[in-house]
Amino acid sequence: MKKLVHLIKEEAIFIVLLVLFIFFMCTSDRFLSLPNLLNIARQVSMLGIASVGMTYVILIGGIDLSTGSIITFVNIITAYFMVNMGMNMWAAILIYLLVSTGIGFINGFLVANFNMPSLIVTFASQIIFEGLAYIISKGMPIFGFPAAFSEIGQGYLGPIPIPIIIMTVVFLIGGFILNKTYFGRYFYALGGNETASELSGIRVKRVKYLIFSLSGLFAGVAGIVMLARTNSGQPTAGKGYEFDVITAVVLGGVSLSGGSGRLANVVAGVLIMGVLKNGMVLLNISSYVQMVVEGLILLLAVGFDCVQKKGLIKA
């Protein structure tokens, strides 16, 4: 019985996903079709990619508010390099990933060395890089990419859209880092107890550099997909994106107080976001109502986490 309760708690997210799935299947006849399902997966691909880095950050009890801004900023400079300077697409992508990782690293450096709360550090970089994106683009979108680049966002490999493939690969890599390498062990250790981690020989600062760098890197990968899909560098491209990502991660049961969470559940969290959005569109629910629902979901997810924590303390 106790095991069953534990199982339900642990796997609740999959049950929710299933229930939503069945609900939309019953209420909309267009929901359950291969093209629609692929469409959902493609829509959440950027969210999924970025959620991996965010999962790491939240696992150690931090938060990264710069995700959207990193996407915007690097979108703009890459678009600028490719379109205005005619740079080779692969070189631009490489620069893209380096810069996004670099911004993440700076976040991590500030958090680790000056004991600044990640909430504030990443919020500051959010503002800074959004501003820089406006300065470089002068507020105007940049478009006209090579066709090969657009393939990343719009192309197919066989029947499967390329963004879905990228997301799958990122999830696999993310899961590998978390479950197979010692960094994964360190992430959990740090989230559980930073002092004890340090005294057990973990170089806490370096782990933080790594985590925020990875968060930047994965935000960068998500941004490339976005840039290729929209086919234009917009100075508003990633605005507010981090909140979708945080919602998905928290929905996936990663505790905001750090130390516990599983990537598989985050995948489910991401899918719930996608299914919900898609289903609501199919049911002709207005985008304003969708916002309300999203907010309520975030509250529910965090509330569930907090109530569970409280229960643990009492026990």
């Binding site: 062990r185 107890n193 004890a196």
Partner: peptide, 15 residues
């Protein structure tokens, strides 16, 4: 300071 309470015996010993 000493033990990583939310982790297993195995992980603590190997840290």
């Amino acid at each position: 300071q000493g033990a990583l309470l939310s982790m297993s015996i195995k992980e603590n010993i190997n840290m």
